[in-house]
């Protein structure tokens, strides 16, 4: 394990512990950790095990997924602008999740929610890859992303507006901005299998992505099956983004910022960027989730607000750089 990975692991672990200690109920750190281990039905144990622990675990799962998916997509398309949130994959996953909830599928069948979100993400990824083409030029990628995001977002809002439930319309904000507030262990169990499966699929792409940096022909001569690589990328991304979006809504810019920051530190090698980016994503979402609880605790600030505040300026910087490189 390199020094970078060690540092990232320490960072994630530290933020995970901090996440367990921060919350509106003022519990002394020692008490809260004891409550976590003790179990039972007393209030401290309930708060720790049913509110804070799921929240911290989900932050790691969601952040890791978004970081990993971002790095994998950027590696495949060889374009630093590819990111699940930006190119509409998260938005289409959210659409799937909303349809599952509103149609009653999520209530009737336990895995209905993550499966529908996965299906949404699958459609989103395939559309992006089809529209952007195998080379994924910056312009087509962004245009495809805008179109898919707008479409999926509009249908999501339409479904919520047509709902019989008076509270449904307010949820547009959640599906646009994402939040980890008041999730439970049920959500962890829903997301975990798909997330782990997706991580496994994406983590194995490293060698193929490394070869792809030399160009498609070179990669093919090195024995990389491009069609298979693409299929695995689509499936893996759909799994992780679908599961993450189903439980936490759409959290943007994580998959953009994290690989961008870490790329120079791993020598721009995709196989090394993948795990680093997963850890970096987990750290970023953990940090953002701690921040929403500290900045304005009484306001239920959404996660996506913070990640966008960090991510959007970087996005502009990337576009500016891309433009300068073009003649």
């Amino acid at each position: 394990m390199t020094r970078l990975m060690l540092a990232l692991c320490t960072l994630v672990f530290g933020l995970f512990c901090l996440s367990l200690l921060v919350g509106p109920a003022r519990i002394a750190p020692a008490d809260s950790l004891l409550g976590l281990l003790r179990g039972g039905l007393d209030p401290v144990a309930m708060v720790m095990r049913e509110i804070r622990l799921p929240r911290a675990i989900l932050a790691v799962l969601v952040g890791g997924s978004l970081g990993l998916a971002g790095a994998a997509m950027q590696g495949y398309l060889r374009n630093p602008l590819a990111e699940p949130g930006l190119i509409g994959v998260s938005a289409s996953a959210a659409l799937g999740a909303v349809i599952a909830i509103q149609s009653g599928l999520a209530a009737a069948f336990m895995l209905g929610l993550p499966l529908m979100a996965l299906a949404g993400a699958l459609v989103g990824v395939m559309l992006v890859l089809a529209l952007a083409g195998p080379r994924g030029g910056a312009l087509t990628l962004i245009l495809a992303g805008i179109a898919i995001s707008a479409m999926a977002g509009a249908i999501t809002q339409l479904v919520l507006n047509l709902s019989k439930n008076p509270f449904a319309v307010n949820e547009i904000v959640f599906w646009m901005m994402g939040s980890l507030a008041d999730r439970s262990l049920t959500h962890v169990w829903l997301a975990l299998p798909f997330t782990l499966l997706g991580w496994l699929v994406l983590a194995r792409l490293g060698r193929g992505l490394d070869a792809l940096t030399l160009g498609e022909d070179a990669a093919a001569t090195m024995g990389v099956h491009l069609g298979r690589l693409r299929l695995m990328l689509v499936l893996g991304t759909a799994c992780v983004v679908g599961a993450a979006t189903a439980v936490a809504g759409t959290i943007g810019f994580v998959g953009l910022v994290v690989p961008h920051l870490l790329r120079p530190l791993v020598g721009a090698q995709p196989s090394r960027l993948l795990p680093a980016s997963a850890l970096g994503g987990a750290a970023m979402v953990l940090a953002a989730d701690i921040a929403v609880r500290l900045v304005v605790p009484e306001r239920d600030l959404k996660l996506g607000v913070l990640t966008a505040l960090v991510g959007a300026p970087l996005f502009l910087h990337l576009i500016y750089k891309t433009r300068k490189e073009q003649p």
């Binding site: 909830i101 509103q102 959640f174 605790p297």
Partner: peptide, 25 residues
């Protein structure tokens, strides 16, 4: 916040009736 509700440990929790059609709220 849910945490404060849990810590306050009230004798009774009075909730609304859910409306038809599900909502996260």
């Amino acid at each position: 916040p849910l945490e404060l509700l849990a810590m306050a440990n009230p004798d009774v929790v009075v909730t609304g009736q859910p409306y038809p059609g599900a909502s996260r709220a």
